[in-house]
């Protein structure tokens, strides 16, 4: 399938045409598609120049800038979705986690990041995140949470993996970075290296997960984020205790995270 047909299939070939005071263009399938930016957002600023400026900002400790993070995050998100039965598209649950998730994101350390929240069509109980702002929980987890405080606790944990750049640090620490970043930035077209690197990231996230210290870090900062958003600071802990009381330390529950007992202990 060529790229044009692929884009048509996933519904990305239609450009927006709403009347606005500022237009920005993105290259989609070789075609510059105008995307309107409302004046209340741009404030009359030349967005093209701002976007260019954002790329010049320091890439930080990971050496991975915003553009590269977005491309890597999209590919990793596709891998997570592909390996977990796709997305559950029922609008009700999806909208609920979007509202709670975006409320939490507002008070995160990256309030300007375009966070997106989705439900994976999987019966396991787990949550995942991808660089660039993608947060996923499984349908099994959504069915298991007892209330919004618990759901917010889980989402805040995943948001903090992104704001604390845990995945990007993992990439920059390892040998994955060389084959990925150049392609993600558009300076290389060695897509096979990008694909292989993305596979490694996806497999790590889905099979072994983050290092335990990163998980405890996300637990700690997630509890703070949930509290500052107005949810209980004990939502995640309560959910983990609920799971432990019904499932024990089953490997099928949060299999990519440290044992429930250890997480509960550190959150207490």
């Amino acid at each position: 399938m060529n790229r044009r047909n692929f884009l048509r299939l996933i519904g990305l070939t239609t450009g927006a045409t709403a009347a606005t005071s500022s237009l920005n263009a993105f290259n989609i399938g070789g075609v510059n598609v105008p995307v309107p930016l409302p004046t209340e957002i741009t404030g009359g600023v030349n967005v093209d120049k701002v976007a260019e400026g954002s790329q010049k900002i320091a890439k930080g400790a990971t050496g991975i800038g915003a553009k590269e993070e977005a491309a890597i995050g999209e590919a990793v998100a596709i891998g997570i979705i592909g390996k977990n039965g796709g997305l559950a598209r029922a609008s009700g649950p999806a909208q609920k986690i979007i509202y709670i998730g975006k409320s939490l994101a507002k008070y995160s350390y990256r309030p300007g990041l375009n966070f997106r929240f989705g439900v994976l069509n999987s019966s396991i109980v787990n949550g995942f995140s991808s660089p660039g702002g993608y947060v996923f929980i499984t349908k099994g987890l959504l069915d298991a949470v007892g209330n919004d405080d618990q759901l917010a606790g889980v989402l805040a944990h995943e948001i903090c993996h992104i704001t604390r750049r845990h995945a990007l640090q993992t990439i920059s620490r390892g040998q994955l970075v060389s084959g990925i970043v150049d392609v993600a930035s558009g300076s290389s077209s060695d897509f096979s290296a990008f694909d292989a690197g993305t596979d490694k990231i996806v497999n790590k996230l889905l099979d072994t997960g983050f290092d335990p210290d990163d998980e405890y870090d996300a637990d700690k900062f997630g509890a703070k984020l949930a509290y500052e958003t107005g949810y209980s600071k004990n939502g995640l802990k309560d959910f983990l205790e609920k799971l432990k009381s019904t499932q024990g330390d089953s490997k099928k529950i949060f299999s990519t995270h440290p044992p429930l007992s250890n997480r509960i202990s550190k959150l207490s």
């Binding site: 967005v47 701002v50 976007a51 900002i57 930080g60 350390y109 990256r110 300007g112 990041l113």
Partner: peptide
């Protein structure tokens, strides 16, 4: 500092 890029991104 790199968080500023989020605030400037389109």
């Amino acid at each position: 500092e790199e968080n500023k890029a989020d605030l400037l991104a389109p």
